[in-house]
Simulated assay, not measured.
Amino acid sequence: MRNLDITTLRSFVAVADLGGVTRAAGHLHLTQSAVSMQLKRLEEVLGLNLLDRSNRSVSLTAAGQQMLGYARRMVDMNDEVMARLTDQTFEGEIVLGVPHDIVLPAVPHVLQRFNTMFPRMKVQLITSFTRDLKAKYQRGECDIILTTETGLEPGGETLTALPLKWVGASGGSAWRQRPLRLVFGRHCIFRAGAIAALEAAGIDWELAVETESDRTIEATVSADMGLNAMIDGMQPRHLEQVDHGGALPELTLQKINMYGVERARGEVLAQLGGLLRQAYQTL
């Protein structure tokens, strides 16, 4: 198998861009004979004439014109890899805060892609409630946060807006009971809206479980002992949206917002923000 050498490709690109071996040699800090030797080696590997040497000025053959595009991309990719893997500019730590109920399915894929792009960067993921994450962000403890809100504060960006849905056990019947038993986190911002919707519909309810543990909520709901409200499509696999046929009221639309990218400086945070934006806008 024949392999192309990045050094020879770099010399070829320099000759093409600068219009001659002499200028390319000066640009690359090499001797003219070294550059000429590299060009000859590249042509031998390919078995093609890349340069038209019939005139005093150097010009590309048809094969050389075609090769130039490939050579540019390969040199650029080489330089990007070396920069990302070795440059200390892309080394450090980012603190990302995400509400625990919207971590899946988007965030793992985002972190995987980001790690491929910036392997020397560390991402500390914090999962908590929106109110807690916004407080941490204001104190400078998080670089970027996602939130679930009905509105948007200055400096934020709405990635998507999705409705809340009633969630219960697979094949469960808890939604038929009256008073309707609710299972919510103590600091969950969805709770007030869900209760207001029930009261507006004249449906009796009771708070069966109030906890700070997501696992407690999931276990109780999956045991068909009550209902919870979650953003459409974000429920765990062992829970399902309740097909109540209109017996329960529709819930509010929730925005998934991002804060931090607007004030971010540098490529790394901008790239992470771009990955998050793309992931949530395609949910």
Rank of each mutant, 00 (worst) to 15 (best):
I6V: 15
I6H: 05
R10Y: 01
A16Y: 13
G19V: 10
G20P: 11
G20C: 11
G20H: 06
A25W: 00
H27Q: 13
H29S: 09
H29C: 04
L30F: 08
L30K: 15
S33P: 00
A34V: 13
K40R: 15
R41T: 10
E44V: 00
V45W: 03
V45T: 14
G47T: 03
L50I: 02
L50W: 04
D52F: 11
D52V: 10
S54E: 12
N55Y: 08
M67S: 02
L68S: 00
G69F: 10
Y70M: 06
Y70K: 01
A71S: 13
A71G: 06
R72L: 09
R72Y: 14
R72C: 05
M77S: 13
N78W: 13
N78Y: 14
M82Y: 02
R84Q: 12
T86I: 08
G97S: 04
V98P: 12
P99K: 09
P99R: 09
P99A: 08
D101Y: 05
D101T: 12
P105F: 00
P105H: 04
A106I: 03
P108G: 06
H109R: 11
V110D: 06
L111Y: 00
Q112P: 02
F114D: 01
N115F: 03
M117H: 11
M117A: 14
F118V: 00
M121F: 07
M121C: 06
K122S: 14
T130M: 05
L133N: 08
Y137D: 00
R139T: 02
C142I: 01
D143M: 04
I144G: 05
I144R: 02
T147H: 06
T148Q: 14
T150S: 08
G151I: 02
P154G: 04
G155K: 01
G155A: 01
G155T: 02
T158A: 12
L159W: 05
L162C: 04
P163M: 02
P163Y: 05
L164R: 08
L164N: 10
K165T: 12
G168V: 04
G171R: 09
W175V: 02
W175F: 14
W175K: 02
R176M: 10
R176L: 14
R176S: 07
R178T: 08
P179T: 11
L180S: 07
L180K: 06
L182N: 06
L182H: 05
V183T: 06
R186K: 12
F190M: 10
R191M: 15
A194L: 09
I195N: 02
L198H: 10
E199V: 03
A200Y: 01
G202S: 14
I203Q: 08
D204S: 13
W205A: 00
E206T: 13
A208W: 13
A208H: 15
S213P: 02
R215M: 09
E218I: 15
E218D: 11
A219K: 13
T220G: 03
A223M: 02
G226E: 04
L227E: 05
L227G: 05
A229H: 06
A229R: 07
Q235S: 07
H238R: 08
L239M: 12
E240C: 10
E240H: 03
Q241S: 13
G245Q: 11
A247C: 07
A247V: 01
P249F: 09
T252N: 08
Y259V: 03
E262H: 13
E262D: 11
L269P: 03
L269Y: 00
A270E: 10
L272W: 07
G273Y: 13
Q281G: 15
Q281D: 05
T282D: 07
T282P: 00
T282Y: 03
L283M: 15
